[in-house]
Design a protein around this nucleic acid. Structure first.
Lengths: 212, 212
DNA sequence: CTGATAAATGGACAGTGCGTTCATATTCTA
DNA sequence: TAGAATATGAACGCACTGTCCATTTATCAG
């Protein structure tokens, strides 16, 4: 059974695609790029990563497939770029002086981004593709994972200097235990969770599970 | 550039494959199954999940491609089964009475399994494939992720009853923060780690990062 | 303004892999 | 031992990638 048969995939001619142009010749780079990213983003959100092929993007964006091969090494890499182009810029990490509150704020925003803003599937699929596609892996770490981890680390460093974290605390581990717990459920276990998990998660990371 | 060109993939005729048989007709089920799983496991370990196609497994195992379609819904699902057939059975969780020591033992075994026994790539690739292949997802959670989480939870429950964990501790979160931290680095960040991480990880989970 | 360069286009082709069907030969089982 | 189950080879259609090409047009340097 082909789970990706053509009939299942709705093909909505993209608005940005090919506005009544003639057949051939060079077109403005910005126009082409915008049409491609728009179509790729739509496809990723609507039908998932497996539906995002060069063939479909080319048709939907009104662009030659050759052009896609020219600029993106793989459909996955295009998907990653399209997703980042559309998702919000990285949020600054708040610093209200209250570490617990700031961690809850930021982590809750992360969970809501996943659960309420439709990021869950694209994120899971992109991280998934990154495991076998080096181009996706690079795009993901450079554009998303590592920058965001750095923001978290900075906030934790400040807290540590202020004595709100132990001097010997390993800040990378704290990050891994906060965000990694969410990714663990999302990617590895597939068990549900929502923003109500966040305060408990932060309290566990700050105070541990052992008796005081 | 095709990173999977035929020339790069060494094709080693599998030992279990087709020992000088005639062309047609039914063959012993056990023989066929063993040859398939052996070839699939070899391919997965040697060349990675993307190289594990029905075509290649069929040729390498000396088996008809039709047979593979009959018994496995996708190459990913076959890869998952092949990997579990070859990896060690789930280890019992030790209970020496020392929770910290037991957690370190078990988590260290996990990290060593990843890093020293070649499980890192197959695990990452299988979890990756699970994000877009429901059959892989099911095989992974049923055969690996959920059973192992249950073992960890049981050990934690005992500790909690003995007062070694707070009564209001969330045991799922503890699991997420221990194993999830490793998966976070493996899958999301792609940053290196080894068994020396484990004791710090356990101490953070037990006592938190905040000052006492 | 103009000529050189860069780039997008449609078209075609081969290669790989999936999914399916079929008649046939063989094993398994009741 | 008869009938059911199933592995086999072969073939076909389909989707997608990767690559080439000649042609047409945008862009930019001088």
């Amino acid at each position: 059974m082909n789970t990706l048969s053509t009939s299942e995939v709705t093909m909505s001619e993209n608005a940005a695609g090919r506005s009544g142009r003639p057949g051939r010749g060079r077109r403005p780079a910005a126009e082409v790029r915008a049409a491609v990213l728009a179509s790729a983003g739509d496809l990723l959100l609507r039908d998932g990563l497996r539906a995002l092929t060069f063939d479909r993007v080319a048709k939907d964006a009104g662009v030659s497939r050759t052009t896609l091969h020219r600029w993106w090494p793989s459909p996955g890499a295009l998907a990653a770029e399209a997703y980042f182009a559309r998702s919000r810029p990285v949020l600054d990490f708040p610093d209200t002086g209250d570490l617990r509150a700031d961690l809850i704020t930021q982590l809750r925003a992360f969970v809501r981004w996943l659960k309420d803003e439709g990021a869950e599937r694209p994120v899971a699929e992109l991280v998934g593709a990154a495991q076998t596609d080096p181009d996706v892996a690079r795009a993901w770490s450079e554009n998303y994972a590592l920058p965001r981890r750095e923001l978290a680390r900075e906030r934790l460093r400040v807290a540590q200097r202020q004595g709100r974290l132990r001097a010997d605390a390993d800040l990378d581990i704290v990050v891994d235990q906060l965000w990694g717990a969410c990714y663990h459920r999302l990617l590895v276990l597939g068990t549900p969770f929502d923003a109500s998990l966040v305060p408990r998660l932060v309290d566990h990371a700050l105070h541990g599970a052992a008796p005081r």
